[in-house]
Design a binder for these strands. Structure first.
Length: 888
RNA sequence: GGGCGGAUAGCUCAGUUGGCUAGAGCGCCUGCCUUACAAGCAGGAGGCCGCAGGUUCAAGUCCUGCUCCGCCCA
């Protein structure tokens, strides 16, 4: 028996939301099992950084995934949303190092083993916090299957993947120019380096000729690197330098003679057209150096300090050295000029330190063959991007892909499964820790000290979490997963790599669809970030508005792959919507009695009943269409508008008339039954959007049914779509709105009942309106209603409007001011006349009539006729008023 | 330099194959504590749809160019 008595008058999200998550866990409604009788639906969560804090981006990401998950679960799929967290290598290591720094310690003070212990501790502390945050959001994940990228199974997957790729020649070790993060003390991949504009200078430095001649002038943004110059390059066709090519110049400060060479790479327009070549510290210079056999001199070390090679500058920080070099050059009169120049140095994504390009021996993944597989997956349709335009972004990257520097000089991460023999120097790459060198059998084989890029394990996530490399039942059943939901900012970092690794190692695409959403920006459209202090904490919003409201508000803001601007107004609107739903449910629950719902009998239905059922099922059909297309905001809007503007504003208002009477028990029972069905559908339709409030009300509506979570999602039934009922209801609504509008225009107090005469164009319409006198009476405060069929003389004591051809007269009992009313009518007529002219122009256009589709023309004709009819009716009324004025 | 996205009401945004008078929420104005809801109800005001061309019977929607904003890549 439904319970409503104890329902608060205002919805209290905090109270309601506190109790259901635990209940869901106890009921096991989020748990998924391999079930060959059902279709699987699987989402693997983008694992949040275990030491991070959830921000609005997570709130958005989890809201979308939970919506999709709950929706599919209700549709009868065996639905698994698999949770987990990421060890987030460099980010986490930095967090813990910062904690240590606060204690005056560095990781080296602790040593590797102790440091990693400490990180695990921090991980454990943060883990429960992040889990509880996720639970506040209502995530319907199967916690039994939670994974962590560094747990045992996933670590095994990582070694397996590495060894397999190594054996296939897709992973190699080599000395190449990489990005070095001097602060983090590790190599970085190209993706982890961000180029941001920054004001700087272009220094013009003279390199004199050995004979004391003028030599030439080079321009550089990094004067300190000149200490490592081993040549100067000019364009072969550059007239200015033609006779310098093949000669040499003196490198100032180092007093070293270096050659002037010619290379096509040089842009004669830049600077002086002469490029100083520092092969050890610039990727382009390295290539030029290699082409011309220039030596490579390392002048900056891994801490960003100058090496012994720089003699008097040794030990200086690279920026101090820059100052000193400039001062010294100036003293020697070799600094020709300094220009302001905006450049874009690469910076570490994590700590913002300017990275140093340098040659280093690292592990690389050979990407080209993998990229081909990744491209094939998308081009063959196995993976689909939503919205589709991200496909091109993905393809462009894969088509121009570089090898992936995947080793990191960090401590927190997956060890590289490689050992180096002290005796024979060969390396052993193997799945299980070896005791002896695979080549000479030596037992002296220390492991590779480095770890893997954190994104290496992320790339395996969709299948490693399901048990790979074991062919587990879960892997066979749930893989490929259904959809990946993520922001566009990690398409390269993560999505592309998962697709490549999924295809190559998992044998199939990791997911059928990728739903790409935008990033959450603040009210001024800026990226939310901790440093800007503009980040909104989802938990604060949850405290203020409730989880359901925040989720619904966010869902309404989702545009396809577009960034979304956080709008507090939306949260207020969504909170109000929760309250609306709550109170509508309260009304229904208080009035539907205890009867079990039965099938709806068509013969017993009123106009309003047929109308709402029609609207209801149209809405459900459209809802399905929008959800299937990932138009989540439109889906939310659809539910909002239907529930508020149709179900509440019209149907409930009319239904009250039947509910609050005792003369016609059958009518009352019919309405009660319909309300039961409608509310049940509404709750289930809304549940993926607002899980908590719908569960709360559901438990009151259908206490015996158990949780709403596994209930079937409402399906549209086209049998209930009823065009005539919608048309008739449209007339009724138009009449009611017209009366209300007249009342407002003439400041008739809401309490004052009025007398109304309706003149309908046909007898059928007159009868329809007469049959709805109760609704009109109640919704427009009309106490006396007269309905007539046109033509009928307009009353002379009334003000009027025309609504869908129906003349609506509101009697003022002698209070009509003919002059004032005439003025009002003239305004209405002139508004209508504008439309009339528009319509007429179209129809007078021969081309329109002959070329536009017949139905469009017919529609236009009908419009014109209706407008003309309405105008005529208003003009009749004008005549009545004119007569009154004349008679006065 | 290449590419992508955006520009619609005061604000945040819808507007899916071109076709009724371009919509919503919030804000604003007027009147109402009408026994589900003042987190509400009813009635309103408010728009050269960035600019300039073009295609078409018809353009917010399609094409071209331009301006401004944001992002990605080199």
């Amino acid at each position: 028996m439904p319970g409503s008595a104890e329902m608060d008058k205002a919805y209290d999200a905090r109270r309601v939301e506190a109790k259901w998550y635990q209940y869901w866990l106890e009921q096991g409604v989020f748990d998924a099992e391999v079930n060959l009788d059902k279709q699987p639906y699987c989402i693997v969560i983008p694992p949040p950084n275990v030491t991070g804090v959830l921000h609005m981006g997570h709130a958005l990401d989890e809201t979308i995934q939970d919506l999709l998950t709950r929706w599919h679960r209700m549709q009868g799929y065996e639905t698994l949303w698999l949770p987990g967290t990421d060890h987030a290598g460099i980010a986490t290591q930095n967090v813990v190092e910062a904690m240590l720094a606060a204690e005056g310690l560095s990781r080296h003070d602790l040593g590797r083993e102790k440091f990693i212990e400490r990180v695990w501790q921090v991980k454990e502390d943060h883990h429960s916090h992040i889990v509880s945050q996720l639970q506040r959001l209502g995530v319907s994940v199967d916690w039994r299957r939670e994974r962590f990228t560094l747990d045992e199974g996933l670590s095994r997957a990582v070694s397996e993947a590495f060894v397999r790729l190594y054996e296939e020649g897709l992973i190699y070790r080599g000395a190449r120019m990489i990005n070095w993060g001097p602060r983090c003390g590790t190599s970085l991949s190209d993706l982890e380096v961000e180029h941001k504009e920054q004001p700087g200078h272009l220094w013009y430095i003279r390199y004199p000729a050995p004979d004391g001649g003028p030599g030439l002038v080079v321009a550089t943004t990094r004067p300190e690197t000149m200490l490592g110059d081993t040549g100067v390059a000019v364009h072969p066709d550059d007239e200015r330098y033609r006779d310098m090519i093949g000669k040499s110049v003196i490198l100032p400060l180092m007093e070293r003679e270096i050659p002037v060479i010619a290379d096509d790479y040089i842009d004669p327009e830049f600077g002086t057209g002469a490029l100083k070549v520092t092969p050890a510290h610039d990727p382009n210079d390295l290539e030029i150096g290699q082409r011309h056999n220039l030596p490579s001199l390392v002048v900056i070390d891994r801490q960003g300090k100058m090496t012994a090679e720089t003699r008097q500058y040794q030990g200086l920080d690279r920026y101090e050295c820059r100052q000193q070099v400039v001062t010294d050059l100036e003293a020697q009169g070799l600094l020709e000029k300094i220009e302001d120049y905006v450049h874009t140095p690469g910076r570490c994504q994590r700590c913002d330190t300017v990275v140093e390009p340098l040659v280093s021996t690292q592990w690389f993944v050979r990407m080209e063959p993998l990229a081909q597989e990744g491209l094939a997956a998308v081009r063959g349709g196995a993976v689909e991007f939503v919205p589709e335009r991200w496909t091109k972004v993905y393809e462009d990257w894969l088509e121009n892909i570089q090898d992936w520097c995947s080793s990191r000089q960090l401590w927190w991460g997956h060890p590289i499964p490689v050992w180096y023999c002290d005796d024979c120097g060969e390396l052993t790459c193997t799945r299980q820790d070896p005791t002896n060198c695979a080549h000479c059998g030596s037992a002296h084989i220390p492991p590779d000290p480095d770890v893997l890029d954190t994104w290496f394990s992320s790339a395996l996530w969709p299948f490693s979490t399901l048990g790979w490399p074991e062919q587990t039942p879960e892997l066979n059943y749930f893989y490929p997963t259904s959809v990946l939901v993520t922001g566009y900012d990690i398409i390269y970092f993560w999505v592309a790599r998962m697709i490549m690794m999924g295809m190559h190692l998992g044998g199939k695409e990791p997911f059928g669809q990728v739903f790409i959403h935008g990033l959450v920006r603040d009210e001024q459209g800026r990226k939310m970030s901790k440093s800007l202090g503009n980040a909104v904490d989802p938990l604060e919003l949850i405290e203020e508005y409730g989880t359901d409201a925040m989720r619904f508000g966010l869902t309404q803001l989702i545009t396809h792959g577009q960034d979304l601007t956080y709008a507090p107004d939306r949260m207020v609107g969504a909170r109000n919507f929760c309250n609306k739903l709550w109170n509508a449910s309260r009304l229904v629950l208080m009035n539907i009695g205890g009867a079990e719902p039965v099938d709806i009998e068509e013969a017993k239905l009123s106009l309003a009943d047929r109308w709402i059922l029609s609207r209801h099922h149209r809405m459900l059909a459209e809802l399905d269409r929008q959800l299937c297309g990932y138009n989540l905001a439109q889906a939310a809007e659809l539910l909002y508008d239907y529930i508020w503007s149709e179900f509440c504003d019209w149907y409930l208002e009319i239904a009250k008339l039947d509910l609050y009477q005792d003369e016609d028990a059958e009518r009352k029972a019919t309405v009660q039954n319909i309300l039961h069905h409608l509310l049940s559908d509404i709750l289930r339709a809304l549940h993926p959007f607002m899980p908590f409030i719908t569960e709360e009300i559901w438990q009151r509506l259908a206490p015996e049914a158990g949780s709403i979570v596994p209930q079937p999602y409402p399906q549209a039934d086209p049998r209930w779509v009823d065009g005539p009922a919608e048309a008739d209801m449209g007339r009724l609504q138009a009449v009611i709105v017209a009366v209300r509008s007249l009342r407002a225009d003439f400041k008739i107090p809401p309490g004052q009942k009025v007398t109304v005469t309706l003149t309908a164009p046909s007898q059928a319409e007159a009868q329809l309106l007469a049959s709805q006198r109760e609704s009109i009476g109640s919704l427009a405060s009309v106490e006396s209603l007269d309905t007539r069929t046109a033509p009928a003389p307009p009353p002379d004591d009334a003000i009027t409007q025309v609504a869908q051809g129906i003349e609506v007269y509101l009697h003022l009992m002698g209070a009509v001011d003919p002059a004032q009313e005439m003025q009002r009518l003239h305004k209405d007529i002139s508004d209508l006349d504008g439309l009339r002219q528009l319509s007429q122009q179209k129809l007078q256009n021969e081309n329109f009539v002959s070329r536009a589709p017949a139905e469009v023309v017919a529609k236009e004709r009908q419009r014109l006729a209706e407008v003309e009819r309405d105008i005529a009716k208003l003009q009749d009324q004008v005549k009545v008023l004119a007569a009154m004025l004349a008679g006065k």
